[in-house]
Design a protein around this nucleic acid. Structure first.
Length: 514
DNA sequence: ATAGGGTTAG
């Protein structure tokens, strides 16, 4: 059978992390039945593809082909179908072979980033296959499929375990595996391990993606110098940079205040490196310019772009206006964004925050009424921390955790304790229409504070705390983390939607400018 | 029998 695999149908990977919550995969799936025509519209050829499932019993091979097909198409609706086919396989007692296992993991992993829960499903599936059936061996494809799921959910311990599995199966010398490990370690907050994996690849085997992964790693951890040095090493080793290299390099420069360096790379990328700037590069430039206070120039750059500025570019301008506290330009950017991506509540929240900071309460109220009228709600912030391989998830004001009492007790004492060394709670980051007292309450129970407090309570002295948040870290929590890192002498690494913050001895690697 | 590629802005 000839398969029409569309390899171009790749999923856009989003940095926005989602938590990994364990769920019994097979139990869930066994409640499902195969209702193919009801739930999804499928391409004609897929109908033909599903035909072999009517055999009794269907062969492992039929399943493998379907999983492969669905991976190539990877979209949400087809993943639903994938679930059902997986359920079908379980119900018919067909045991996965190494081959179907790889396909299955790839299927869940490739679609897992856009929707909560699928990355964890891929991870659970992987774990079960490693445990339940020793006949099933991971191959390098299984590994490079599953590692991004660890990266996405910031599951460092699980990632380390998978690295161990690689060593055990002799896969750790495979250059694609090594390359994927760099990304996993970097996104799970361990830059040192990422570097170690990079160094392990023999210089001749360091391909474009390995370099891109390493430069991205430095960029997201705010190590601009290393970013530029790695870029220079890459050039020296004869690997041509591509558009992704420059995205990483430019964002690395902006994350660490190297605005001039970043801008000069932007200007030379087209002429010297023959890489045509794309939307994301313009988004970086807007960001770079705003960091040297040139917001007006940023707006002019957008006006002169050779292509239509998309939401990414206007989003960068909105963030830049917030950074420069320029309400006028913020309104221009927001106006565009409300048309281009009306469903993105983050834009309304950011503009509303700016109005609030400027004391324009009427506009704040207008926005709130608008959001309410359209049934939109601010997406809830959540943070999680992995301890002994388990992810503990917190939502702001959450009391559901078994250790909630201890956590809240610590969060009552901590602000008082760190006030003595200069901390003042900043309620301007909490912009609901509520009293100061209530504001304070919601501020002290932000999800990232809950996760940090939980981490302090459940780890040994000196152990690094790695917290991940689905949104941008709040300014007050940022200050809070600095003081906590100081009095507890703890390194706290927070990954937010944009970048990493390394807190140590009362300072943050972002230099308070992010 | 199947033979699949990791990286992306604010």
């Amino acid at each position: 059978m000839q398969l029409a695999i569309r390899t171009s149908a790749k999923l856009n990977i989003n940095l926005s992390p989602t938590p990994c919550i364990s769920s019994p995969c097979y139990g869930f799936l066994s409640r499902h039945r195969l209702h193919v025509s009801k739930h999804v519209t499928i391409p004609q050829s897929l109908g033909t593809l599903l035909q072999p499932l009517r055999q009794n019993p269907p062969s492992v091979f039929s399943y493998a082909l379907i999983f492969q097909y669905l991976t190539a198409y990877s979209n949400k609706n087809l993943l639903k179908l994938g679930h059902q086919v997986h359920a079908h396989m379980v119900l018919h007692g067909v045991m996965p072979s190494s081959f179907t296992a790889a396909k299955l993991v790839a299927m869940y992993a490739s679609s897992g980033y856009t929707q909560n829960g699928f990355a964890s499903r891929a991870l659970d599936l992987f774990d079960q296959m490693m445990l339940e059936n020793s006949e099933v061996k991971p191959n390098w494809v299984t590994i490079v499929s599953i590692l991004p799921a660890c990266a996405h959910s910031a599951a460092l311990d699980r990632g380390k375990r998978i690295h161990e599995i690689c060593r055990h199966n002799g896969l750790d010398s495979h250059s694609s595996v090594q390359t994927a490990l760099i990304g996993m370690y970097a996104k799970c907050g361990s830059l040192a391990d990422a570097k170690q994996c990079f160094d392990k690849i023999s210089p001749g085997n360091r391909g474009l993606v390995a370099w891109n992964n390493m430069i991205t790693a430095y960029a997201s951890h705010g190590r601009g110098r290393e970013c530029v040095l790695a870029f220079q090493d890459m050039e020296a080793s004869g690997v041509q940079p591509d558009a992704i290299t420059f995205t990483a390099l430019l964002s690395g420069c902006s994350h660490s205040g190297l605005a001039d360096v970043g801008l000069s790379y932007f200007y030379s990328m087209k002429n010297q490196y023959s890489v045509v700037p794309r939307l994301e590069h313009y988004a970086c430039v807007v960001d770079l310019l705003s960091r040297v206070g040139q917001l007006v120039e940023a707006k002019e750059t957008i006006d002169q772009m050779p292509m239509q500025p998309g939401p990414s570019v206007w989003g960068a301008l909105l963030a830049a206006s917030h950074r420069c506290r320029n309400l006028q330009i913020a309104e221009i950017a927001a106006k565009q964004l409300f048309v281009l991506e009306p469903e993105n509540t983050g834009n309304y929240v950011l503009l509303s925050n700016m109005y609030a900071e400027a004391g324009k309460w009427e506009e704040v109220n207008n926005l709130r009424v608008f959001l309410k009228g359209h049934g939109m709600r601010k997406s809830p912030g959540c943070s999680w921390i992995e301890i002994n391989g388990n992810a503990h998830l917190f939502i702001g004001g959450d009391t559901a955790h078994p250790q909630a009492r201890e956590i809240y007790k610590l969060l009552e004492e901590l602000p008082e304790k760190i006030k003595t060394i200069g901390y003042t709670p900043n309620t301007s980051f909490s912009l609901h229409d509520i009293s100061e007292e209530e504001k304070m309450l919601s501020l002290t129970t932000h999800s990232e504070k809950l996760a940090i407090a939980f981490g302090i309570l459940n780890t040994r002295t000196g152990q690094v705390l790695r917290v991940t948040k689905n949104l941008r870290i709040c300014g007050d929590c940022h200050t809070f983390a600095k003081f906590v890192s100081d009095i507890y002498k703890r390194e706290i690494i927070v990954r937010d939607v944009n970048r990493f913050h390394h807190f140590q001895d009362g300072f943050c690697s972002c230099g308070d400018f992010w």
